[in-house]
Amino acid sequence: DESNKPILLPNESQSFERSVQLLDQIPSYDTHKIAVLYVGEGQSNSELAILSNEHGSYRYTEFLTGLGRLIELKDCQPDKVYLGGLDVCGEDGQFTYCWHDDIMQAVFHIATLMPTKDVDKHRCDKKRHLGNDFVSIVYNDSGEDFKLGTIKGQFNFVHVIVTPLDYECNLVSLQCRKDMEGLVDTSVAKIVSDRNLPFVARQMALHANMASQVHHSRSNPTDIYPSKWIARLRHIKRLRQRICEEAAYSNPSLPLVHPPSHSKAPAQTPAEPTPGYEVGQRKRLISSVEDFTE
């Protein structure tokens, strides 16, 4: 099969070098950035008060330690540790928490760990991170309901609301924008112990962030949302095809390698009803078989 044979790379090609550099910018793992907010007593309706908090309760602090690993920003190499735009020179604080497994990295933009500057009256330095995160974990210690939209931002799609209760338990629920209701189930609340709260809140936030990324990708319907490693695979396959075309153009005697095509017509299947918005969006999480067989 010609399409699977190794090909020689061009010795000097600026377009090839640019493509390789672009490939280096696509990590081999999925990345997520999640905002974390603490809401104190009497702050449920005040964005400024929430963003001005420099610490929270003892249970909130224990919750943070379970979310991930504490890292010092100045020691991080952005090409190895995903920071979601946090500055490593102290502009966004000294520490944050991050978490990773074999296929993804997540960083938490924690408002109480970011510096509260006197010259920044409206807390814009914090909002440029927190307001651009799709998902926020809100530790609501106010005793009042927290409403979506209290923290203004164009991309605040989903809130994971943590409400501490007695007996070391917590109520965990989801809020989302109306255009996200087909992807996020907000109907079920959970009672979770303090011990298990970081794991549950983190998983709910990661799932909500993946759904938000799919939702946000609708602005470019021709580019369905893939995982990062599938995006790398697609980029490599496009690069291979372009090299083959350039080689055939410079030397017409060489065969032009095309991806294999299936001449056999697909079997006719009964027509199915058109899937609704929710089903269609969830299918976009699934990769096409052509990603692996071309």
Rank of each mutant, 00 (worst) to 15 (best):
R240K: 11
L183E: 06
I26W: 05
D1W: 14
E2I: 09
T150D: 03
E245N: 09
T274D: 11
K152G: 13
Q25N: 11
P273W: 10
Q94V: 09
E47D: 04
R123F: 15
D118M: 12
V160A: 01
M114Y: 04
I103E: 13
L171S: 04
A201P: 01
S3V: 11
S15D: 15
T61Q: 09
L86I: 11
P255E: 13
H215C: 08
W229H: 12
S253E: 14
S212Q: 03
M114K: 04
P6T: 08
Y225H: 14
D125S: 12
C244W: 14
P270R: 09
R284H: 14
L239I: 10
P78F: 12
K117Y: 14
H32P: 03
C98N: 10
H32I: 15
S250V: 11
H216I: 09
R18P: 09
Q21C: 07
V135P: 00
D92F: 08
G280S: 12
V257T: 11
Y58E: 05
V184K: 02
P78I: 13
Q105K: 11
G93D: 07
E17D: 09
S3W: 07
K178N: 09
K190Q: 11
L130V: 12
Q21H: 09
I103D: 15
A189N: 06
I224M: 08
G93P: 14
T112N: 02
G85C: 05
E246M: 05
I191K: 01
S263L: 08
S261P: 11
N251G: 06
C89D: 14
L37W: 07
K283R: 12
R195L: 06
P260A: 12
S13D: 13
P221V: 05
P275E: 14
F155N: 14
V20Q: 07
L285P: 14
Q77G: 12
L183K: 03
E54N: 07
D87H: 06
W99N: 03
D194G: 00
T163K: 06
D120T: 10
H109E: 07
E47R: 01
T293F: 04
D120P: 07
V188H: 07
G84I: 02
D194N: 04
V192C: 05
T65V: 05
L86P: 12
S57L: 01
R18G: 10
N209T: 13
V81P: 14
S44P: 03
N132H: 14
V192E: 01
Y225P: 10
V192K: 00
V162H: 00
D118R: 15
K5T: 15
T222G: 06
V214T: 03
T163W: 02
G90F: 06
N4W: 10
S136T: 13
S136D: 01
P252V: 10
H129C: 07
G280E: 10
P260R: 08
T116Q: 07
G42F: 15
D92A: 11
V184R: 02
P198F: 00
Q154W: 10
C176T: 07
R59V: 00
I26D: 05
K121H: 13
P226N: 06
Q268L: 10
V39H: 01
I26M: 15
D79W: 04
F292G: 14
E181K: 06
Y249K: 06
G40H: 01
I103R: 03
T96D: 04
T150H: 03
S57P: 03
L37N: 02
Y167H: 04
S261F: 06
V279M: 11
L67A: 00
N140V: 00
G56M: 02
H55W: 15
